[in-house]
Nucleic acid binder design. Structure first.
Lengths: 181, 181
DNA sequence: TTAACCATGTAATCTGTTACATGATTCA
DNA sequence: TGAATCATGTAACAGATTACATGGTTAA
């Protein structure tokens, strides 16, 4: 059981999903490729933490829809009470910015504007996401209770939005610092 | 040449350092252990990107002090102009918060307060760091030019501070959301 | 007709963590 | 006396990425 396994269980704890859907939806809090997810799902199934049914589809390929078992829920609950590892952030851009004096102003401005664009798109995506959560929750988001099924998603997306906004702010500040050079 | 290698080169581009010092100083932008760094330094040296001298110390163990070579600088400069990978963030806490409804309010509040404490300490550390940069730079930080040797560090620490503040903000907001449950 | 999306899987490789190994100095 | 810091290295293992493999549908 590694962290990604718990991530998969946490999604399945909300509702049954296929491996493909899990792969798409876990990106926001634990980036992973399908080649990592499919073998883990098989292991979780062998261990009795999840089970699946094959759902035939006419327009698309058939899919395996996984559900969490009671054993899986217990595992997840136990894990929550164990010590939490520190967050890990790795960003190539910060290395490049750190030694930006090796290149010229244009290069530096390009790097920053590309990243600003990335964060802008991310914000658009996150705002769409929060609107979808709002519709699903059926209540004003600010008054959501911990037991509302949408609560977890809201907390997650809210954090992603705050972080992305602070990153955008930094991009603008950094570009300004460059222009004043 | 992987990203960590460029991270090491970017530090050596500022000034010569030992493997041990590199290990400590790279944590802020690319977390890595000494067991990853020492073999990479050996490879970089074989490739002619860095060189080292052994500096004997009386009170502490002798150390290898590495410097970047011209070839290393060229490598680094070329790398900056190549496409930049998206940033990667992984945080166990977000998985736990996502399925927090499995546990009780106390558990949830504990998780958040522990993380808040972590971010508070990080902020203290970063503020100390920025003061040291300020002393070193010998000029008001807000007017630092791109070619000042402290510019890169300032950009880096500034981003870390903005991010940590936004994370702290989220922690407080999330705790409030819980209390209103 | 070409690319994108849906859908699942395995193999090879690279990256990162934990553990093993050694040994001096300093501080509580 | 025991823990922490300085200092460098290797080995084993776990985690993550890229590439290989297959094949249908849909929209530009």
């Amino acid at each position: 059981m590694n962290t990604l396994s718990y991530g998969l269980l946490s999604l399945l704890n909300k509702s049954p999903r296929s491996g493909y859907e899990l792969m798409q939806q876990i990106q926001l809090f634990w980036p992973a490729r399908h080649s990592q997810i499919y073998p883990l799902l098989a292991k979780l199934q062998e261990a009795g933490s999840v089970e699946f049914i094959i759902v035939p589809q006419s327009d698309k390929p058939d899919k395996k829809v996984y559900s969490i078992t009671q054993a899986g829920k217990n595992l997840l609950r136990e894990w929550i009470s164990q010590p939490t590892a520190d967050p890990i952030n790795r960003d190539e851009l910060m290395i490049k910015i750190f030694c930006i004096s090796l290149t010229n102003l244009n290069q530096a401005e390009l790097l920053l504007s590309q990243r600003e664009c990335y964060y802008r798109n991310k914000l658009l995506f996150l705002n769409e996401k929060i609107e979808r959560i709002s519709l699903l929750a059926g209540a004003p988001l600010e008054s959501l209770s911990m037991h509302n099924p949408s609560f977890g998603s809201y907390m997650l997306v809210k954090k992603a939005i705050l972080n992305t906004e602070s990153n955008l702010e930094w991009c603008k500040w950094a570009a300004m610092m460059l222009r004043n050079s």
